[in-house]
Design a protein around this nucleic acid. Sequence first.
DNA 1: GGGCGCGACGGTACTGAGTTCCGTGTCAGG
DNA 2: CCTGACACGGAACTCAGTACCGTCGCGCCC
Lengths: 222, 222
Amino acid sequence: MRDALVAAAFRLFPERGYEQTTVDDIVALAGVGRRSFFRYFPSKEDVVFPDHERCLADMTAFLYAGGDDVEPVRRVCDAARLVLLMYAENPTFSVQRYHLTKQVPGLRAYELSVVWRYERALAGYLRARFAGLRDGILRADVIAAAVVAAHNNALRAWLRSDGEGDAETTVDHALGHVREAFGTAPAPGVSGGPEDVVVIVSRRGAPLWRVVQELESALGRG
Amino acid sequence: MRDALVAAAFRLFPERGYEQTTVDDIVALAGVGRRSFFRYFPSKEDVVFPDHERCLADMTAFLYAGGDDVEPVRRVCDAARLVLLMYAENPTFSVQRYHLTKQVPGLRAYELSVVWRYERALAGYLRARFAGLRDGILRADVIAAAVVAAHNNALRAWLRSDGEGDAETTVDHALGHVREAFGTAPAPGVSGGPEDVVVIVSRRGAPLWRVVQELESALGRG
DNA sequence: GGGCGCGACGGTACTGAGTTCCGTGTCAGG
DNA sequence: CCTGACACGGAACTCAGTACCGTCGCGCCC
């Protein structure tokens, strides 16, 4: 029933556009009553994101499945990675939806509220992991936003390639930037970020010779 | 006329709720025709964010008013700071709207699309400033998202205080975290982050003497 | 001064999303 | 055969948003 409605909707949307397709058109093509549409989808927009609830639940489950021994930032990056892989499971559907949301303002707004829930899930996890830390909530919110932005960047690049590109490499590269910025270097050779970049953090009070020593060591010239 | 409609709307919203207030109620109280409402506000939600367009335009103008000599990340942080100060100009109105958006899902979704436009404005500016840089677009998007998240964090904290707290200090502190994470130390004594930390990023291919030069300069020992 | 265009406002009627209420079939178990 | 739970369908309704048109007030030009 759900699947029949989604199938009918995505047969009509490409040919006459989202806004020009009424719910009556969809239910007529699916051969079901109008009332049944709103039983399965609270609004017309929801039919465009039919598996969003399940995907969000999967990501949340993944977050809390790992123990507290795994590094938090790495965990949320892996969660974002997981979401992108879910998108990549149905390339044609994802690309079709991308073209819809790109040109229908109403759907773009709805997509924002969808993405927002993912971001809040990530932030909630990080807030719990950062509990007690100085500015833990702020740090959690900022990192969650950065992770989502990196994920979206990679996702859109992949969608623009019509699902032909390498989604994994792209998202790992993007998330590598975030982990770099927030103090968790990607594992060597994992393909996150360019491998010829090294970050040194120093306190101003430290003696210069110690900083140079660390620097040479980090650059492999010691 | 606009002001009359906004005033009427915000007299009705608190007493009977946003969704229970129809557009007809608003225009009846304002003493104008229903048609005129939609002349000034494309949708019912827009009356809740009456000065959003102006605020966005002001922020964009501020971004491009500074020359290319000012550091990009600092510039977008200052732009976010400017937005928060605009909110702080009308504390009672901002707090009232906060309570509305907090409990009406439809308004929260609309607010997301509003915030999204600010984020895209910041990202657009950063993309231009980072043009030609390796992963410039990705970096721009991630930093814009982080700045917006930090701004929102500070804004919500201030709104929860019913506009009584110190908005400037809060937002400076939050944005300091972002500037720390992305390699731009906050101005000395501004209260963002620990002031004795400096970050140097180097590519492995760079000559060591150049790196040490940058390092000495950053540490203020050159 | 008298048409005259123009822009702002108001009213009517319409479309379509979303809701409410209710009738109908269907299948289980007693 | 009766009955209660449940899924579906349909009619009628509310309200946001749009299209169309009529009206008023204003300056402007002949």
